[in-house]
Amino acid sequence: MNENKTKTYRLRMIAMLAVLAVVAVGYFAAGGIGNLCGIGFESITLLCPLGALLAMVAEKTAIPAAVVSVLAVLVICIVLGKVFCSWVCPVHFLSGSKRRKEFRACAANTRKDGEIGGSNAPADAGALTEQEKTALSGCSSCAAPCGKSRGVKIDSRHGILAAALGSTLVFGFPVFCLVCPVGLTFATVLLVMRLFAFGETTWTIIAFIALIAAEVVLLPRWCAKFCPLGALLSLMSGLNRTFRPHLNAEKCLAESRGASCDLCVRACPEGINLHDIAAGETTLADCSKCRACADVCPERAVTFPLLAPKAAGERAATPAPAELDEDLVFAEGAGTDR
């Protein structure tokens, strides 16, 4: 299981490094590959959806390549969700390492608990399941109703997204792009390459590295609390119904035997609570398909099926049409209002 866990992590790391390598080679080749702010060949370019929106807001005109890029990313989000975050974005790995360490420590403890719960379960299975059922019928972690289980949960990232659009409208240039850690990472790669290739020295390298470090290390959880690109992708992924994590209630220790296992909840870098989505920081719209939950589950109860089985019922169900529409309107509003 441990091997499996590192396997997806490694796979993701390889995917991210591959993109980084392609961009780095492209920097010194004449192919015009670009970087994640705009990547592609020749005149075909997939722009960063946030950058594309900001550029159009700044100029107050529709830029063909930008409109196409936003739509293309929307399609990607509908099919694959927020995959960019955990499979391509280098910042996710930078900010994830800290969290991974602390998680590993508690994972060891909880795993023990889980096993004990599992072995004890058959003796008093009936009682525990009853308890568990009553506990799970409401919200397990708090008495008050705590947010929705479907659609997109609006949080600080979305506020910053709105501010990014607003400040761009006011000042006439993409303000957020100046401090975007993703863009700065690629800029730093370029500057370091030029430092070694041409001996080009500049304070900018140190400034960029300091800025990335400040955002990723000093700020509490950049990806979960600040990243407006993640916010935009989560809004777009509100329509995603495929490859969503599905918890098999029969296999899950917590759901079937009442063990106090929340390994998948702790493993999730996006703050999703698979046991009770309403209790989590975010909903499934924020799932970046990193498979951390699937890899950490001792019972392999978490899967990423193409479409969630109908029997899953209320846990991974499709949202009510009304709520879906509301999300659509909001996503469009964020895109075109400004």
Binding site: G159, A163, G166, A279
Partner: peptide, 23 residues
């Protein structure tokens, strides 16, 4: 409810203010 805490609001407001100041 828990979906939008005071902390979340503070971080969002700080980040937003930061962006406006940066611009």
């Amino acid at each position: 409810g828990a979906g939008f805490t005071r902390r979340t609001f503070t971080l969002g407001a700080l980040g937003a203010a930061g962006l406006v100041a940066l611009g």
